[in-house]
Amino acid sequence: MAPFPCLPFFTTTKSKTTSNCIPIEQFCHRFSLAELQAATNGFKPSLIVSEEGQCQVYKGHLKGHGDVAIKHFKTRSPAYDIEFRVEVKILCQLHHPNIVPLVGFCEHKNDKFVVYDYVSNGSLYDCLHGTNNNGGVPLSWIQRLNICIGVARGLHYIYFETKIPIMHRAVKSSNVLLDHNLVPKVADFGLCKKHPQEESRPKPPRVELRENLEVSLEYLEPEYFMTARLSDKSDVYSFGVVMLEILCRKKACFLTPSGDCEYLVKWAFDDERKGVFEKIVDPSLIGKIAPACWEVFIEIVQRCLASVEERPTMGEVTMVLENAFLLQREQMCEGV
């Protein structure tokens, strides 16, 4: 099957009927509600592994498949119906080691579910800021670099290696899942959007978000607040925030000791801290980052957070991060 045969269904924010689309049953396996109830002991509350917005994610076990994550769309609004269908139709056609694998879906009356492979280490957000971080041991710098590289490869894949380039539009640490080997899997494709086929990949037109889109402001590029539009370079900016979050081990928006809300980008690059390694890096990494690696890494972070015209492509980001990884490994070898 050719990639994205039904993409016109979600190319615009305006409502469209589904009559011109291939039924989603033809994209992937459809589960019955009874199968998902059995997999989750009747959607037992203790099996909820995450909850964000109008969605709950349960850990379940499907006979013949194993552990799965089951995302339940709790709302019945048309916007979330579109999000559900977009996520199913895109994920069933994306096959990459850094994209969360889709198992199937369930649509029963007003209840809608998306079923994925279960990713055992939870989200990057939880691993950095929560309680599942290897028993409280911070991630090493090599582990963090590998995570950055994997996420960059996944984002590069959906934009440059699919038939039709796609923007994710919700790049944030909570939408990066980590498997048992800490391999990152980009997740939550319900808000993504394709670019028109007639446009060139490097400079597609900027597109508008749905009016009722729930966004995480701390990951949004500054230009959004003036134009209310996003582009592929918006994902690059958001990934820059994620990289900074990984480096500093601070939330993208956090409370200061005085109780004020502080954005990580502003905090890390204010006059007091800009360029000062010890003032922004996670204390557990002090003395463990090779100077050459640090220079390459912080430069690509700053470029991702620059104005739209100055931001690199995700392919360039990937290559720079791979170089930073090699520089780090070189110093580790020299120290042996």
Rank of each mutant, 00 (worst) to 15 (best):
Q328A: 06
V176S: 00
L209W: 00
L255K: 15
G136T: 06
H29Y: 03
A79C: 07
C127R: 13
P312C: 07
A38M: 13
S284G: 03
C333Y: 09
I24R: 11
A69H: 03
E310S: 12
K193R: 15
S258N: 12
I24A: 05
L305A: 04
F43Q: 05
G135V: 06
N146R: 15
N133F: 07
V115M: 09
A324G: 03
L177I: 03
V68S: 02
E334A: 10
A69E: 09
S46E: 14
V88M: 08
H72P: 00
N175I: 02
Y224W: 09
V242S: 09
K279P: 01
E316H: 10
D235T: 05
I82Y: 10
T40W: 12
V137H: 11
D81R: 07
N323Y: 08
M319H: 10
E161R: 03
G53I: 02
K274W: 14
K233P: 07
F31W: 01
L217V: 13
S216F: 08
Q197S: 12
V119P: 00
I158W: 05
E52D: 14
L7M: 07
E278V: 11
F160I: 00
L7S: 10
L209R: 11
L321Q: 07
K193I: 06
L247T: 12
P3I: 03
Y157H: 15
G42P: 09
I90H: 01
F43I: 05
I164Q: 15
E208Y: 06
R85L: 11
T256W: 08
Y237E: 05
Y224M: 10
V186R: 03
E214S: 06
K163S: 15
I300T: 12
L191N: 09
S15F: 11
N110I: 02
L264K: 02
P97Y: 06
G240W: 13
T12K: 12
V276C: 10
V236P: 14
R169G: 04
F269R: 05
K233H: 01
P196K: 13
P23M: 02
F297G: 01
G130T: 06
N133G: 10
G60W: 05
S123M: 00
N134C: 05
D260L: 12
I286Q: 13
G154P: 01
E245D: 12
P78T: 00
P291A: 11
L177A: 08
N212S: 11
H95P: 00
L62M: 09
E278G: 04
L33H: 09
F84N: 02
L177V: 04
H195Y: 15
V242F: 13
V114D: 06
T75M: 02
H129F: 10
Y125A: 09
K266S: 13
T18Q: 13
M332Y: 12
E262W: 06
V151S: 05
C127I: 07
A290T: 03
K71I: 00
Y157R: 00
G66Q: 04
K109N: 11
P97M: 05
R169D: 09
R303Y: 13
Y224V: 08
V308Q: 14
E299P: 00
R30A: 10
E35A: 10
R210M: 12
I280R: 04
I300N: 06
F105D: 05
D81I: 04
V296K: 13
E199N: 12
I246C: 09
F31G: 03
M332T: 10
C333Q: 15
F4K: 05
K109S: 06
K251Y: 03
I298S: 04
Y159G: 07
D179S: 07
V88F: 07
H61M: 07
E83Y: 01
